[in-house]
Simulated assay, not measured.
Amino acid sequence: MPRRVDHDERRRHLTAALLRIASTRGLQAVSMREVAAEAGVSLRVVQYYFTDKRTLMLSGITELAARLDRRVRERAAAIGTGLPPRTVFDVVLGAILPTDDDSRADQLAWTAYYAAGLTDPAEAVDGRYAPDALERWLTGVLATAVETGDVPAGVDPRIEVVSLLALTNGLVSSVLGRQRDVDDALRVVRYRLDRLFGAATRG
């Protein structure tokens, strides 16, 4: 009896191969044939699941966003339910930083997508929906914190979230570039959060 193929698992396997190439050699090295070789399958298999390179590339962006979401959920679950706003920001921003081999590889892949879009518009894949959705969600969390008095009333939630995410993404680059280690990056993020959430107490 022929073995049944798990098509979702096969797509994940191919997408993981794409992201390994992106994180080690950049998107310029990505092709349907290279992904097939990395995944250990025939080119025809890749073409069966992904109609063209752009569809394949989009699967990579989607998977990177899903991995970050899983990382955040796992870290939050390890702490418990009903997390206070400060802890939510600790968890989310900490999950963005490359704190281990897996998250480092994911951030290298994110960087490869970003760089490709800057230097070759034809290679660009619109992955803005993931960061935009995260920004909107965190803005809602911070707006609630303003209402409950966890942060000062004069704080603009959207601007604070934009600046926190910009800070964290800048720290990602400095960690990847070995300008600083991840512990130093975490200290910078927590210092900024201390000033934001501690301001209500000081006030």
Score class of each variant (00 low, 15 high):
D100T: 15
A29I: 05
Y114R: 13
A143V: 13
R54Y: 00
P84N: 10
V175H: 03
Y49D: 09
A143F: 00
A77P: 00
A185R: 06
L171P: 03
A78I: 09
P131V: 03
R25E: 14
S173T: 12
P98A: 15
T24I: 07
G40V: 02
A78F: 08
R136G: 10
R202W: 05
Y49L: 07
A166R: 08
A133V: 04
G26W: 05
A77E: 06
M57Y: 01
L165E: 03
R202A: 15
V155H: 02
R158Y: 04
D150K: 07
A109I: 03
L56G: 05
T119Q: 00
R195L: 15
S163R: 12
D101H: 00
M57G: 01
G117V: 07
P157G: 11
T201A: 15
P84S: 14
E9H: 09
A78C: 08
A133T: 00
A17M: 12
A166V: 08
L58G: 06
E74N: 11
I96F: 02
T87N: 11
H7K: 14
L56Q: 11
R4D: 06
V175L: 12
V45G: 03
R136N: 13
T55V: 12
Y49K: 14
A145I: 09
R33Y: 06
T15P: 08
D106A: 12
A153E: 12
Y113I: 07
T62D: 08
A143E: 12
V172F: 10
P2W: 00
A16P: 05
K53P: 06
D194Y: 02
S23G: 14
A22D: 03
A78G: 05
A199T: 13
P84M: 13
I21L: 13
I96T: 10
V182L: 06
G127N: 06
S59V: 04
A199H: 06
T148I: 12
T201I: 15
L97T: 07
G80L: 11
L14N: 06
T15N: 05
E160F: 03
E135S: 10
V91S: 10
L58Q: 09
D52Q: 04
T99N: 04
T24R: 14
L186Y: 04
A116T: 08
V155L: 15
E147Y: 02
V182N: 08
H7C: 13
T201M: 08
V161A: 07
V182G: 10
D120W: 01
L14T: 07
Y114D: 11
A116Q: 01
R70K: 08
P84D: 14
T168D: 01
V188E: 13
P157N: 08
G26T: 12
V161S: 04
R44S: 14
G203Y: 05
